[in-house]
Design a binder for these strands. Structure first.
Length: 255
DNA sequence: TAGGCCATCTGGTCCT
DNA sequence: AGGACCAGATGGCCTA
C-alpha cells in the first residue's frame, strides 16, 4: 500500500467513524424519545437501553390489550404486564410509579422476575386512589391513564374506556411527546389530603440513595432506591402538557 | 475486583 | 466508490 493510498484509507476510516458516531447518536436520541413516553420517565435516572425496549414492549402490549378488548385490566394485571421480563431495579421503578412500594420488590436475587412482580402485587393492597377524583379506589389501568391527564379529561377517559372507542385512528406523530410524568425521580402519588388537591395532583419523588455521577444515567443507579425528598409537583391543567403516552392515546384523549 | 452499561472504533456486508 | 447497517472488540465509568 502506497503512502497516498494509506492516507486515503485513513481519511475514509475517519469519515466512516464520524458517520457511525452520528448514526449511534441518532439511535440514542430515538431511544431518549422512547424513554420520554414510558410510564416511568426520569431525566436523572435513565432506564438502560435494553430495559427501555423491554418496558416499551410491555407498555405497548398493555395498551394493545385495552384497545383490543375494550376492557381495562386490573391495576394488578397492569403492573404485571409492565413488569414482565424487566430487571429488579426497573420493576421497582415501575412499582413505585404505580404506587406499589418499591421495597416490596426487594426480594431474593434468585427469584424469577415474574415472581417479583407477583409478590409485589399480592403483598400490597393495590390502592390507586387519586386525590381529587371521585369513587375510589382506582385499581385499574384506566386509573393509570387518568394519572397521565388532568382531571378535566376524566370524562373523556370514561367515554373511551367505558365503551369501545368508535374511532381509533392514529394521528400523525407530531414531534417529541411529552412524558406522562415529565418530572425527575421515582414517582408515586402522595396520599395526604392537602386542601388544594382539587386543583392539582401532588406527587412524591423518590430519589436514589446513591449519587448520579458520570455522564450517563445508568439503570443500576437506582438499585436500592429509597425515598429521599418529597417534591410537590403542580399537575394542574395549566401546567400539564396536552400530550399522553403516544399517538394512540392522543387519539383517545383529543377526540 | 467483577459485572453492567456505555461510547467509540473497526471491518464486513449489502445496497445505490 | 461511498454510505448505511451491523456486530465484535475495547476501554472507561460506576456500583456492589
Amino acid at each position: 500500500m502506497t503512502k497516498a493510498r494509506l492516507e486515503r484509507f485513513r481519511a475514509r476510516r475517519v469519515k466512516a467513524n464520524a458517520r457511525e458516531r452520528t448514526r449511534m447518536h441518532g439511535l440514542n436520541d430515538a431511544l431518549d424519545n422512547l424513554r420520554r413516553v414510558m410510564p416511568c420517565y426520569s431525566k436523572t435516572q435513565k432506564l438502560s437501553k435494553i430495559e427501555t425496549l423491554r418496558l416499551a414492549r410491555n407498555y405497548i402490549w398493555a395498551l394493545s390489550e385495552v384497545l383490543e378488548t375494550g376492557q381495562t385490566p386490573e391495576g394488578k394485571s397492569f403492573v404485571e404486564m409492565l413488569c414482565k421480563g424487566l430487571s429488579q431495579p426497573t420493576s421497582n421503578l415501575v412499582a413505585g410509579c404505580l404506587q406499589l412500594g418499591p421495597q416490596t420488590l426487594f426480594l431474593e436475587k434468585h427469584e424469577e422476575k415474574s415472581q417479583v412482580c407477583e409478590s409485589a402485587i399480592s403483598s400490597h393492597s393495590f390502592s390507586y386512589q387519586s386525590p381529587g377524583l371521585p369513587s375510589p379506589p382506582y385499581g385499574t389501568m384506566e386509573t393509570h391513564l387518568l394519572h397521565l391527564k388532568p382531571p378535566t379529561f376524566k370524562s373523556l377517559v370514561d367515554a373511551s374506556f367505558g365503551n369501545h372507542p368508535s374511532d381509533c385512528t392514529t394521528p400523525p406523530y407530531e414531534g417529541p411527546l411529552t412524558p406522562p410524568l415529565s418530572i425527575s425521580g421515582n414517582f408515586s402519588l402522595k396520599q395526604d389530603g392537602s386542601p388544594d388537591l382539587d386543583k392539582s395532583y401532588t406527587f412524591m419523588a423518590h430519589y436514589p440513595s446513591v449519587s448520579l455521577g458520570g455522564a450517563h444515567g445508568h439503570a443500576s443507579h437506582f438499585q436500592n432506591t429509597v425515598p429521599r425528598y418529597e417534591i410537590p409537583i403542580d399537575m394542574s391543567y395549566e401546567s400539564y402538557p396536552h400530550h399522553v403516552a403516544g399517538p394512540q392515546l392522543n387519539a383517545i384523549f383529543n377526540e
